[in-house]
Design a protein around this nucleic acid. Sequence first.
DNA 1: GCAAGCCTACCTACCAGTAGGTAGGCTAAT
DNA 2: ATTAGCCTACCTACTGGTAGGTAGGCTTGC
Lengths: 207, 207
Amino acid sequence: MTTKSANARHTRQQLIAVGADLLCRRGYTGFSYQDLAHELGISKPSVHHHFAQKADLGLALCDWTEQWLRDGFGHFDQHGQNAPDKLQRYLRAAAKHTFNEHKQCPLSALHSDLAQLPDAMRARLSDLSQLEVNWVAAVFRQGLADGELQAPAGASAQELAQLFIFACKGALYYARLLGREHFEQSMTLLLQQWLPDAQPAQSHTPL
Amino acid sequence: MTTKSANARHTRQQLIAVGADLLCRRGYTGFSYQDLAHELGISKPSVHHHFAQKADLGLALCDWTEQWLRDGFGHFDQHGQNAPDKLQRYLRAAAKHTFNEHKQCPLSALHSDLAQLPDAMRARLSDLSQLEVNWVAAVFRQGLADGELQAPAGASAQELAQLFIFACKGALYYARLLGREHFEQSMTLLLQQWLPDAQPAQSHTPL
DNA sequence: GCAAGCCTACCTACCAGTAGGTAGGCTAAT
DNA sequence: ATTAGCCTACCTACTGGTAGGTAGGCTTGC
């Protein structure tokens, strides 16, 4: 029943799954082939059999991350009622990942280890970051078109998206130490300014 | 002239200086006693003579970071004309550090390696993060009092400061790969909303 | 039907290099 | 004489990676 090749596919997938988990918990340089081997109950050279070099596994983890992103975005697109709701779902997922599961998102984990990443992975990470920006930008574009979101004069959906993501990732970094409420406070404040019923500045009326 | 103890103080200071540089370039786990020894032209055990364990050096680097922060803040306080100018100087310094010198700020570097940090360093990093938040919060408090900055209704200086810092740090992470302009765009957009002459939302008049 | 040959997945044993860290000795300033 | 600062030599544990071999399934030719 369990043929050798089926087992192999299984092992390879398990390596990616465990690798992704370790990546999110300890970063790219924070886990070793030893760790993977131990986790799967196989030998270190057997890990090399599936991924000759760690960079090969790293690239596979980038592929995994791309799928992880696409799945997440698909889910938010499908269940989110409107743009603000999609962003809220994105933030809730990020918070759950960070504070309940005590993991970083794979993108942040890779950004953390940027200096030790092989060139191929850096290029891939750049693309993945852009992929994330693009999805958030599309949500903002939709929100602006629907009137569910409101931009400061002259700000593009792309710019809003980047600020949103950067603030989110930075807040997650710091909130791991400072506490979850710091993340929630900051992101609420940021989004609040872009909601139509927001009061953008106290006792100030624009021209 | 160069007495042994003077030389020693010098070596210790050099270790901290080089350690701080390596910390900002490669992170806490990204440099070794070997690297420090090589850089100073001494042996690895001699480094241990000054800092018995790496965690001891790590704590010393936290002290160095605190001084680095206080010096920076002092400089911005002294030369900044008003609150927005102080924030701009903070951002310019951060950009220079990241894009010209290709370093992370020591706080971000430590946050990146959070999972591998000894407990004592984590506690220290938490305090340092709070120190930075407090300074930025003070600048916002001043700006709000002077009318140079304008907060969304209900937002405290503390909250604005945290969002400002988190966005800045997150933007720096991403802009290392995506390009400096992404950092500048995002932070300009964020600050612009809090300047008195800002047009907070296109064709929208608050009640 | 069956065996030869190949393939995949795994193994043990090992490599050079590096991590953080230690023991003990020499030298020179106090 | 003591001690601070440095040294050589060494330790254990672990890094990514390799050499060489084995077990067993798959395919092919006879």
